[in-house]
Simulated assay, not measured.
Amino acid sequence: MHMALARFLLEGNDHLGYLSVLDRTTGLMVFIHSPDQTQEAQDFIEQARTVLPVEVVETPGRKEGA
């Protein structure tokens, strides 16, 4: 249920990016967005936390701010 709500919220934010499910049993998803919209993506995550249990897990090897 949370995955569907997350996708719905993302669609309501002008398709800021897209979600891909990595593990449906744990609810692990990856949020893909344009690097030039990093601030907007972070704002979206903070807003989503008000209605969804969101935990940010950094991607190994990912550069900060990329």
Rank of each mutant, 00 (worst) to 15 (best):
residue 2 H to D: 13
residue 2 H to F: 08
residue 27 G to L: 05
residue 61 G to R: 05
residue 47 Q to I: 05
residue 60 P to W: 03
residue 37 Q to H: 13
residue 57 V to H: 06
residue 56 V to G: 04
residue 66 A to T: 09
residue 20 S to E: 15
residue 58 E to K: 11
residue 17 G to C: 04
residue 44 F to G: 02
residue 5 L to Q: 15
residue 5 L to F: 01
residue 25 T to V: 10
residue 1 M to I: 09
residue 58 E to T: 15
residue 51 V to D: 00
residue 61 G to I: 11
residue 5 L to Y: 02
residue 21 V to I: 15
residue 1 M to E: 10
residue 40 E to M: 03
residue 48 A to Q: 03
residue 54 V to N: 02
residue 11 E to D: 12
residue 15 H to D: 13
residue 35 P to I: 08
residue 25 T to R: 14
residue 63 K to D: 05
residue 16 L to F: 08
residue 8 F to P: 01
residue 52 L to V: 11
residue 39 Q to D: 15
residue 6 A to W: 03
residue 1 M to C: 06
residue 24 R to I: 13
residue 38 T to A: 14
residue 40 E to V: 04
residue 6 A to V: 06
residue 15 H to C: 11
residue 36 D to V: 14
residue 21 V to L: 09
residue 19 L to G: 03
residue 22 L to E: 07
residue 27 G to Q: 06
residue 18 Y to P: 00
residue 30 V to S: 13
residue 64 E to N: 07
residue 27 G to W: 04
residue 22 L to P: 00
residue 17 G to R: 00
residue 24 R to D: 05
residue 57 V to F: 02
residue 52 L to K: 09
residue 9 L to Q: 11
residue 62 R to C: 07
residue 23 D to L: 09
residue 60 P to S: 08
residue 51 V to H: 07
residue 62 R to T: 07
residue 59 T to Y: 06
residue 14 D to I: 01
residue 46 E to P: 02
residue 44 F to L: 03
residue 44 F to T: 03
residue 56 V to A: 06
residue 15 H to W: 08
residue 46 E to R: 13
residue 26 T to P: 02
residue 65 G to N: 12
residue 13 N to V: 10
residue 19 L to E: 04
residue 35 P to R: 07
residue 59 T to H: 06
residue 28 L to W: 00
residue 20 S to D: 11
residue 35 P to C: 07
residue 66 A to D: 11
residue 21 V to R: 03
residue 49 R to C: 10
residue 56 V to S: 06
residue 52 L to Q: 08
residue 29 M to Y: 01
residue 22 L to S: 03
residue 9 L to D: 01
residue 34 S to K: 12
